[in-house]
Design a protein around this nucleic acid. Structure first.
Lengths: 212, 212
DNA sequence: GTTGAAATTAGTACGAA
DNA sequence: TTCGTACTAATTTCAAC
């Protein structure tokens, strides 16, 4: 039937395999699409919006949950209202062979909202939410600096969050992509590739995943 | 203009101002704490877990929603299961006076999950989810490079997402902090500040917010 | 701010297409 | 598989305290 592979952007065609479990069809994706905007919608209303029966909706809803495609439901809050008006990104260089310790320490930092291991100049990026800039300073110099695994950090502040989607779905821009008029390859001028830069992993980081 | 026309993410809250509307007390925070883990819990069950009456829970729940402290409810999905196994960060340098255009183009990129304006060497950070690495390349060289507002980009891949909380709350680590024993300022040794680096905004970016 | 009812809605089970 | 219906359990609303 339908394949979810069509991603307006990835010109590269074939989808590649989805997960091990469920094969997600268009209806599954539509369910996820609705749930993204309203995670508290009743399954009955969900069924109606997706255009399937209630029983079917319950089945698919439960399948998505059981399969792990839906990990959990949550809320989105206004951090400013909650008194955490400052957001910062801390790029961390981690001493090799000390990832385990680094991760353990992370678990003790409730102000960390997100942490990812990256390629490039640094090894990890941490996003923190705190009340004021002083708290960022404290966090970096007192907490992070005291972790032996942390070799160096670089901190930037987030001035504005322009866009935040709960998640991206394949084929998200299917209607929009048509309307949004993407210039055809032929009519595009020469792309100044020089200004685009990809940054590979720092040396020795290849063995990162097996470190812990 | 749709999605990102205004500061869609930081809500109405002015940077720096706290609690324009509701004054959040401990019970409000506890509600948000429960909702973070289970956004689909019934208000009745919520009341029980927080230790208040149902009517009270309904009142507070509605107040949080109306005030905008809770922006919406949503799901968390497994991107791998959805066929989007690749996550990348693209750091963008934006030509001054072209922020408006940049934001407009962003709205047409459904693979963008998050975009923030930052201090530091670059002007913005974009997080994208795509099916394969080729799609990242396409995204950067075809889509971003064609935006006049984009002066340069730098791309890194996310190898692993170590930690992801839906949101941070003030006082999150209140019990843990006591147990986790943070050394008092006096008893801490000298922190090697040399390895910590804060990066200020690039010149001319101060006028960023009024640019659009 | 709380409790206890009624009214509504959600979730389940099962047979039929 | 999916749908439709009937049944049961739970939630939300609304009242009075």
């Amino acid at each position: 039937m339908s394949d979810i592979s069509r991603n307006g952007v990835s010109g590269g065609g074939q989808p590649g395999r989805i997960g091990i479990g469920l094969e997600l069809d268009d209806i599954h994706l539509k369910i996820l699409e609705v749930l993204r905007e309203n995670g508290r919608i009743s399954v009955a209303a969900l069924a109606e919006r997706v255009g399937i029966s209630r029983a079917n909706a319950y089945t698919r809803f439960e399948a998505l949950r059981a399969d792990g495609a839906i990990k959990r439901f949550t809320a989105e809050i206004d951090h400013g209202r909650a008194g955490l008006g400052i957001t910062a990104l801390i790029f961390v260089t981690v001493r090799q062979q000390m990832w385990k310790q680094f991760r353990a320490e992370l678990a003790r930092m409730p102000e960390v909202e997100y942490c990812a291991i990256t390629t490039g100049q640094h090894d990890a990026m941490i996003q923190v939410r705190v009340a004021d800039v002083a708290a960022v300073h404290t966090m970096v110099t007192d907490r992070l600096a005291n972790i032996p695994a942390v070799k160096a950090t670089e901190t930037v502040f987030i001035l504005d969050e322009v866009l935040r989607r709960p998640y991206v779905l394949p084929g998200d821009g299917r209607q929009r992509a048509t309307a949004a008029r993407r210039p055809a390859t032929e009519e595009r001028g020469d792309v100044p590739l020089g200004k685009m830069r990809f940054v590979g992993a720092a040396e020795g980081r290849a063995a990162l995943r097996k470190d812990d």
